[in-house]
């Protein structure tokens, strides 16, 4: 199969698929990152807990989701976990998009939890002691003293995680979520042109990741000057 210009003309004919895929990838990643941040914060804090009933579930969760391939997680969640859960309540499982969000959120939360834990642990324990000695509660000390400082240190690894998740979101193409990689896959399959669709997909991912790293770099600059 030759790389010639007609392949891009084909892509242009299918442009709506790519545009929709582009925004779907952005949407999928944004929601998963947002939910992953919230869940990751709680899991990360749980991993710092001295209570075994809090610590161990969090540790097992992180180990399982970091220790197995995201690809396998997506498949399992879509074809087994979610249908079973909805089966219990006699409901029809929601779309593949829903499964994709669940898988990406659970996966990213495991990595984000470790970033939170590391960030919090990197703050000198004198900070917590000083806050507590002033009569602040543990939660107040976390909120006003520890987390703001930890967040600054967590920005670079969080940025890396977001970029990784953006790229990994392409894996949900396997369950037919109409995101960017799936757009390339469908176009290639139905037109028999291969270069155009996949080069287009790659360039669009590159645009997304470069824009995201600009945002992260901007945030790092802003927080470091404070």
């Amino acid at each position: 199969m030759e790389l010639d210009f007609t392949t891009f003309i084909k892509v242009w004919e299918y442009r709506e698929l790519f545009i929709r895929g582009f925004f779907m990838t952005l949407y999928l990643t944004s929601i998963s990152v947002f939910l992953g941040l919230i869940l990751g914060l709680f899991v990360g804090l749980s991993k710092l807990s001295k209570r075994k009933l809090v610590y161990w579930p969090a540790k097992i969760y992180v180990d399982v989701f970091r220790g197995t391939p995201l690809f396998v997680q997506i498949l399992m969640i879509h074809v087994a976990v979610i249908p079973s859960i909805f089966g219990i309540f006699d409901r029809i499982p929601p779309s593949a998009f829903f499964s994709g969000i669940v898988a990406l959120t659970l996966n990213s939360a495991a990595y984000i939890a470790e970033i939170f834990r590391g960030g919090i642990q990197s703050i000198d324990k004198g900070q917590m002691e000083a806050a507590r000695s002033l009569g602040m509660t543990h939660n107040q000390s976390m909120k006003y003293i520890i987390l703001p400082q930890a967040f600054k240190r967590m920005l670079p690894p969080l940025g890396n995680e977001f970029i990784a998740l953006l790229k990994d979101s392409s894996l949900v193409a396997i369950i037919a979520v109409n995101e960017l990689a799936y757009a390339g896959f469908i176009t290639a399959k139905s037109t028999f042109y291969r270069w155009g669709p996949y080069i287009t997909v790659a360039i669009l991912y590159l645009i997304l990741t470069m824009a995201l790293s600009q945002v992260v770099a901007y945030l790092e600059r802003r927080f470091s000057t404070e």
Binding site: D124, G126, Q127, A130, A131, R132, S133, L134, G135, I145
Partner: peptide, 14 residues
């Protein structure tokens, strides 16, 4: 603790 102030060797300022 609100009634007991503490000053540390390494200051521990925020």
């Amino acid at each position: 603790r609100t009634e007991v102030g503490m000053v540390f060797q390494h200051f521990n300022l925020f």
